[in-house]
Every structure is written in C-alpha cells, then in structure tokens.
Design a protein around this nucleic acid. Structure first.
Lengths: 343, 343
DNA sequence: ATCCTCAGCTAATGCGCATTAGCGCGTGAG
DNA sequence: CTCACGCGCTAATGCGCATTAGCTGAGGAT
C-alpha cells in the first residue's frame, strides 16, 4: 500500500513493493537489452507482478522529459475542422490520420488552443505548445508561410498534408497529384473530341490550385481561363470562347455552372461537359454525378502519419504525391456538335 | 545564441541572456503574485524581451511534471468517431468540445492509442496514458463499467457525455434529458387524440435507451413495447395492438417502419404517426421529415468541457441534463379514425 | 552604531522517469 | 594468491520547470 492512497503510484513505490531499485523497475518496464539479458526472470516476474497488481502506469510527462519522446503526434489545422462548412472536406484526412495513429500506438494532440489572430490561426503563437508532441501533421488549404519557414529552420519534425512550396528549405508533404490527375482529365476530354477545354477557377493562390492549373496548361494547346464567381458571366465567357468542356477548380462552381447551363436549356454534358477537379471543399447540394477525380484524402492522412513517425525516428523528410482516382460520373461526353469560337 | 543551435532553449538560457536567474524567468513567465509585486518592471521587461526575441516556449512536459497541470484535455471515445458510420452522430459533440477547449485555451488529446481488445476499447488498457491530460471527456453510447468504476475510485477528473448510472459512486455527466423529451412527445400525441401510443425499441441497455423508455412509461397509461428488427413484424404488432402512434428509439427503425407502412398503403401520419426519439445515430437515407426531438449534441460537448475544467480546478462533480428541442416535423398528426385494439 | 524591515532577487529542491556509472560478489585464469 | 571479468543489481544524475527557503544590501527605526 502506498502511504497516501490519493497519491499516484511511482516507480519508487513499485520498487519498494518488489524489493528492488527504481532503476530495475524502469529497466523491466521498458525491457531494455539490459533487462533481457541481465535481469533474471525471477526478478522481472516479481516486478511485473507488482505492476499488474497495483495497476501502475508510467507518467507520460515524466517519460517525455527523461526520454525526449512521447508517442504523441500533433495535428494542426489551419481551417476549422470540426465546426463549419469545411468540416466535411477535412474529415477524411482525419480519418486517415486517426487510423494510422492508432496503428502506430500514438495519441493525437489537436492544437485547439491556437488562438485566431488577425483572422487566422498560427502554429507559432504566443506560448505555442508544439513541443508537447513528438511531431506534427499540418492540415489546411493554405498554410502560413512564416510558420513553415520556422518549422523547417528549427528542424521540428512535421509533415504537411498537401504539397507545399519550399519555405527556406524543402517542406515534407504528402500531397495529391493534381497535376497528373488534371492532365488525365484533359486527355480524356480531348480523346472524346473536345477541342476547346476551358478552366474555371483561379489557377493561382494555394499550391493545390496552382498544381491543377499547371496540369491543365500542360495538356491543352490553347488555355482558356475563366474566373468563377458569377455563374452567368462565366457561362457567357465559356460559350463565347467556344468551349465544349470545362474543368472546374472548385466543386461548388461546377454545380453553379451546371445549374446555369441547364437553366438556359443547354444540356450537360451534351452541349457542355463539366468536370470537377476534386471533392467538394464545402457542402453543395446537388444530385449531379460529376465526372472528375477523387482526392485520396484518407490515404493522404494515413501516409502523412507514416512519414511523420519515420521522420521522428530519424528518417529523412519525404515529399510524395499520391495519385487521384478517376471518377467516371455523367458529365463528360463527346460534344454533340462542333462549334467554332463564336457558335 | 545558444551554444548548440539544435538544442532547444531552456529557461536557463533565457536567464543567462537576461542576466537573471532561472527562477526569475519562471516567475516572470507565469507572472505570479511574487512577480507582479516584487520584480521591478525593468527586470521583467528585460526578461520578456529576451523571451520574445528568442521565441522561447516552455516545455509543456516539464511544466506538467513540475506543476501537475497541462491545459490538455483528453477525449476518449468508445465508439469510433472519425471513421465509420457513427461518425456523423458524434461529430457535433466534438464540435462542442473543440469550441469549448479553444475558448478555454486547452488542447485536446485524442486517445487513439487505446487498442481494441475483445472487440472494445477501454480507457484502462496496458500502459494507458490518461495522466498526460489534466482530465478527460468520455464519449459513447455505452461506456465500460469497469473503466467508470476505476475512474471514479481513482478520483481522476472526467466528465461523461451522456447520463451514466452510478459506478461505485456518482458519475459526473452532461446528458440529454431524454426522459422529459419523450414525455413531452407522448403528451403531444395524446393531446392530438392518440389513445394508444407504442414504443418501438429495446427500452433497456444503455442509459440513453432506459431514459427514453422511462419517459414513455411514465407518460402512457398502458405501455406497448415493440421490438425493432423486422419492420414487417413490428408493424403487424403495432397494428394488432391498436397503436395509432409510435415512438421509435432509433431513427433508422422509424425510417424502416415508415417505409413498411407506406408500402402497405397506410398513410403516415394519417393512419400511423411515427415519432423519432433523437437524431440518427447512423446515416439513414430518407426524405421524411420526422417529428421528434433534437439532441443538443454540440451544447453537450461544450458543457462537458466546461464542467471538466471546473472539476480540474477543484470544483465538485456535476450531473446535469440538457433539454432537447422539439422538432415539429410532419409525421405526427391527429389519428384519422379511431380503432379498437383489433381494427 | 545596531537592529530590523523589505525589496529584489537566487540557490536548492523535487516532480517521475531513463540512463550512466559503478559496486560487491563470485569465478576462472595466470 | 592475485587479478580480471561478468553477473545482478543500485546510486546518482539530469531532463526543464515550479516552488520554497533564504540571501544580500539599502533604508528606516531605535
């Protein structure tokens, strides 16, 4: 019995009960090489028996302090994950992260304490708590550049979900190969007979947009970039440019455009093929089964944790792109009649 | 500059740079009463300046070890939260938990490392890591009784989301007042003229079922309990019992029953009113707008964190039930014609 | 001149663990 | 009869911090 029943057990208590030293308890607990070979089975069993009898568990904080490791992985999200509209989009990433963490026997620390300053969250805020975790997974459409730079320069182990440009050094990431996925879509469209494939979106900004647009620009002879926003205006521009197929950077824009087109009596995909470049980042009600591709979100989350644990264990930082799966859908078909650049 | 750039800064480093002792740095950092009154502004500013210049952050593990507090709240879920079908149900709880944690400046530790043994997860598994957090929120339809007992007896600060029976002592919880909510639904049905209101469900098992059923049993003169499972059989039994309204413990059962009824040419709610007792715990496709009530899931999560932090700071354990909001819906109406217990 | 504040610090300690150095003993080699 | 060596352990140390006890010097009281 420990003297104060409310006090939690320590290794010293176990040691006393087992009639050994605290060191021995530690050795047995972590069954170090020393223990395997040097501590006789009898002693070890005695210690283990006391441990199970008392239900002793090592204090993780002390462990961390002494050993420098924790088996805790941080998760930092630049977008709000749980609340809000974007939640559904980020959910699958978390599923993958959770799966992998469970598999690795790690706990996840959500850095919810990061305050929102000037409308955005930062890893490095006043009194940040990064070091509570062994490393960290970063999530979000757009990461803070200063954060990244500092993470890189401090050598803190982290992995970004989503490709990122260098930030004073290469950024470890697990991204989706948007570039290849978009190229493939364009190729499919062109193979079907589409001569003018347009791009509805910004094409700049976050890496994920840039990559999509680059894939598009590489695969098309004469790029047509149409800004989203007002669907009516966008449709006008697309028709004026003689586009028979359009790739939509954002799922929601595709929905709006399709609605606009059908509202004007155009058939989709008959008169206009509309292809989405990834899953919806915000919930959009639609019953259209869009052609496009699927972002391997779950797999990305999973792989990010794998890479992170490797990194923590001394591995080298990796950059990898995962392939996106083609989604056949029903909005890409051969153009019904060819049109010149002005109908 | 610290000697080894890879080594992380410690309070000693800060102390050296500021020309004070480590103690002083600690005092300034936590602006203790001592610091406020006893350390002159000049010294404090100097220390603070060095801190911001170097970007020093206290090691949370060390902090925890020394002070015993962490500002980390654990979250343990008995059901899989992220993956799986039940995810959507638990999501709102997490939203509330996250909100409150952010507000309190706490990080959340998801105990993903808990292995699944004999088909279920347990808080107290081999080498559990409860003590990494200051306290813990428990989530799930059914909590492990042994876990609860041990948590209570060890005096570990925790709050259950959902009412729980005593486990060797009162269990702190934030639950939904199913009992009152069900009573209210029955009263509404009876006020509309329903003389035989049945209960479709188990009525036993998890506290949440028991509470619903108790509310039902209290409000109805002659209870009729019908087991879910085969919707056809259930409908037969309901009709045989002369029920004109039925409360469905599980949302999915209500959907199945409604389908069955309409398939037989019965109108809902005309011939049979069907009322749900809470939100769907698993995703069910339906376009029926059921009458029933809404579980204040988000608010429950939020309140649980509030209560937990109070508890950690020395407050007394609380048990509270939050009211459920009535959902008008379209499946409860006055019975069209009265029937005896055999049509 | 001496004692006593009291401001403004610091030395020392311990949280619970992992780790390193090393102690006492027995045994076989020289 | 020494000496080296391996076995089975333990004492001691330090991780980075919070905290407690106390130290030093200046100024006021006696």
């Amino acid at each position: 019995m420990p003297p104060d029943p409310s006090r939690r057990l320590t290794q010293r208590d176990i040691a006393r009960l087992a009639g050994v030293s605290q060191t021995t308890v530690s050795l047995v607990l972590n069954n170090r090489a020393d223990a395997e070979s040097r501590i006789p089975a009898e002693t070890r069993d005695r210690v283990l028996r006391v441990i199970t009898e008392t239900g002793y568990v090592a204090d993780p904080a002390a462990r961390r302090l002494a050993a420098g490791r924790n088996r805790i992985l941080g998760v930092f999200t630049y977008e709000p994950v749980f609340p809000s509209a974007t939640g559904d989009f980020y959910h699958p990433f978390l599923v993958g992260i959770e799966e992998s963490a469970e598999h690795r026997g790690c706990d996840l620390l959500l850095f919810t304490s990061a305050p929102v300053v000037d409308g955005r969250k930062r890893v490095y805020h006043q009194d940040h708590r990064l070091r509570l975790a062994d490393g960290c997974v970063l999530l979000g459409r757009e990461l803070d550049r200063e954060d990244l730079t500092r993470l890189v320069s401090e050598g803190y182990p982290f992995v970004s979900v989503g490709r990122r440009d260098d930030a004073g050094g290469p950024v470890p990431y697990v991204g989706a190969d948007y570039r290849a996925a978009v190229r493939e879509l364009v190729d499919r469209a062109r193979a079907l007979g589409h001569e003018r494939v347009a791009y509805l979106g910004q094409g700049t900004g976050p890496e994920s947009y840039v990559d999509r647009h680059r894939g598009y620009a590489e695969a098309v002879p004469a790029p047509v970039l149409v800004a989203p926003g007002d669907p009516a205006a966008a449709l006008d521009r697309l028709l004026a440019a003689g586009a028979t197929a359009v790739l939509s950077e954002e799922y929601a824009d595709a929905v709006a455009l399709a609605g606009q087109a059908r509202g004007r009596g155009l058939s989709v995909p008959g008169d206009l093929s509309i292809v989405t470049l990834g899953d919806p980042t915000r919930p959009v009600p639609t019953d259209i089964d869009f052609t496009g591709f699927l972002i391997p979100r779950r797999e990305m989350g999973r792989q990010a944790v794998e890479d992170l644990t490797e990194l923590i264990e001394g591995g080298t930082p990796l950059q990898r792109l995962l392939p996106c799966e083609y989604a056949r859908g029903a909005t890409l078909a051969a153009p019904t009649h060819t049109r010149g650049p002005r109908a």
